[in-house]
Write a protein that binds this DNA or RNA. Structure first.
Lengths: 349, 349
DNA sequence: CTGAAAGCGCTTACAG
DNA sequence: CTGAAAGCGCTTACAG
């Protein structure tokens, strides 16, 4: 392989690849883009040439021609900063590949939502991605729908009609976590519920109840504490659980922020995690690997979901431009149970 | 203002703007790009037309022509996930504007660094951005320099020679925090130092000592605890400080992760934050606003630093391609002291 | 200070 | 299955 020339303005183009392979640029393009109808021999020659020259397509050229020139808005209210960061990484990765542009708008109250919405519309946005919890706001989705703007909801528990969505299977993810706890030998397992306004919270709670029942385990009424997905609400909930006369040996928290709070509270009353009490989270945001011990949790591929949301959105925009109806596609991504140091067998086992 | 046509593949181009303003596309382009030598009247007409049509430049077209087609690598070892996320957002925002491409490589040990470096070189990378702590690795910068690859170091305390860098003024940021604590009335202020291998750690510590001395405050030897920037090291350090016979009334932690740990430890031994003890951080990563109480900290504009790093890099690459010498520019960004709920006057004042 | 021409790298649409 | 031509939107380089 010849060393890549440095200090040279021009880089390897598809014409170089075509020339080296002895084909037309069109054939080279087809191979690069994996079109099916190319002869095997030519395909191999082009692939070899591309590899030898270390060819990388110029994305600007590509997107100029395919004119994927969409403007995508991201409208968010008050998610955790960490979650939004991860999502935005995926969104930006994908839009930079496709040449789409991104506008981010924050809205807190109902008035600021009106302002944000107007700004997006004035900017001539082609579609809006809604991270949680806005993805579940009937009002927001409706307003966008009336303006004929396609919407992709991220991580909603129950997508509104006609709205495309990207999510994980919260229910089965939570079941997997519960099975992990039961397999470790826990029988006294408590739940910290999430904000009832967030639709995935209910799914995660349902999984808790169903798995407990299936395993023949009892759920004392005071083993279920209400949380709001915030650290502070996690502190309150965990304190209530751990100060019970017969405290649980494991706490399944509906997200990482509350689990982090629970770990802190446990330490506060002299309990070691996981030796004395197991604490698990959900989402696998950065806090899960920041604190000590690191949290056993259900990994949600947030960046990948951001990428998927953009792809769905571009597809939706293309459909509308072509005069076709909306697809309302729902993509379900894979969760992963990540076992770290915050979970272990209950004491005395 | 006419409503933007929906369901129309083609969007507003610079030709539309030029036509409406009655000028050539070139003049329109010059106005959009703020070239100085354009007549005032034409300028105004073009600006008006652009606004009326809600024109947004097509970035693909622009970067194709200006061929800002650089390939930028981001090589990182083990920073906090939250910090890297924020940095990457800035990097991706800027590269998507300029049309540059990004390759991210992680390396842990010394062997994996060799692999990562090779991959970047094989990919024909034009420059490498080094987030902390790799920005301070003599070996890494040297190796890249030998391969004639420009480097931009992010958040290094003392940039290596010939390496461009983006950072904040860690010393004065830490001074500002210390003055805040002193102004609140604290006299017994402790420090949790950062990892001695990270160059900003020393600057933040120096600011502590200097400000204490300037204020005529004593620093008992055991008021300075060594940390490693990790949550776990923060727990150990905070425990040592708070169990002292005469504990401090304020703890200045060299980063947010350790401050979060200190808050947790304080709660653990029955101390309220900030009523009984003040705890402050540094960086303003997402954990600062996740935990409760939220941390008073020094905001480091990490995403903006990512954007700046890309701009510096593109400039550096342009210089080299033009055969000019490296600039080795050092950009210093603004920090902000963010007062939140974790700091207050000492008890009994 | 202003503009007509050309071309960045790629792929669509047409032709064979 | 393969290719010659054209053009996506923009700005550089040249001319006036």
């Amino acid at each position: 392989m010849p060393p890549r020339k440095r200090n040279t303005p021009r880089s390897v183009t598809i014409l170089d690849v075509a020339k080296r392979a002895g084909v037309s640029p069109m054939t080279a393009s087809r191979v690069i883009n994996k079109h099916p109808r190319v002869g095997a021999e030519l395909r191999d020659r082009v692939q070899a040439a591309a590899k030898e020259l270390n060819y990388r397509p110029n994305l600007a050229g590509r997107s100029l021609r395919t004119s994927n020139t969409a403007r995508i808005g991201v409208l968010y209210s008050n998610p955790s900063a960490a979650y939004l960061n991860q999502l935005m990484i995926g969104v930006l990765e994908e839009t930079s590949l496709s040449g789409a542009q991104v506008l981010v708008e924050k809205c807190s109250g109902i008035r600021s939502q009106r302002v944000a919405m107007k700004r997006l519309l004035d900017a001539g946005i082609d579609g809006v991605i809604l991270p949680p919890p806005l993805c579940d706001s009937r009002q927001t989705t409706q307003e966008l729908d009336e303006a004929d703007i396609p919407v992709v909801a991220v991580a909603t528990g129950q997508p509104a009609e006609g709205v495309a969505s990207v999510r994980i299977d919260d229910y089965h993810g939570a079941c997997a976590m519960m099975r992990h706890l039961i397999k470790l030998g826990h029988t006294r397992i408590a739940l910290i519920k999430g904000d009832p306004k967030h639709t995935p919270a209910a799914l995660r709670a349902q999984a808790y109840f169903d798995t407990m029942e299936k395993a023949g385990l009892e759920v004392p009424e005071n083993y279920v504490a209400q949380g709001l997905f915030t650290y502070r609400s996690g502190m309150t909930a965990a304190r209530a659980l751990l100060e019970l006369p017969t405290p649980p040996t494991a706490i399944f928290s509906s997200n990482d922020d509350m689990a982090a709070a629970a770990v802190s509270v446990a330490h506060g009353i002299g309990l070691h995690v996981p030796e004395d009490v197991t604490v698990t989270g959900f989402d696998d945001t950065p806090v899960a690997t920041t604190i000590w011990p690191m949290l056993t949790t259900v990994h949600q591929p947030v960046s990948a979901m951001g990428r998927a949301a953009v792809r769905l959105m571009l597809e939706e925009i293309r459909r509308r431009r072509a005069g076709r109806s909306k697809s309302g596609e729902h993509q379900v991504m894979k969760y992963t149970l990540v076992k770290r140091q915050s979970s272990a067998a209950p004491p005395g086992r």
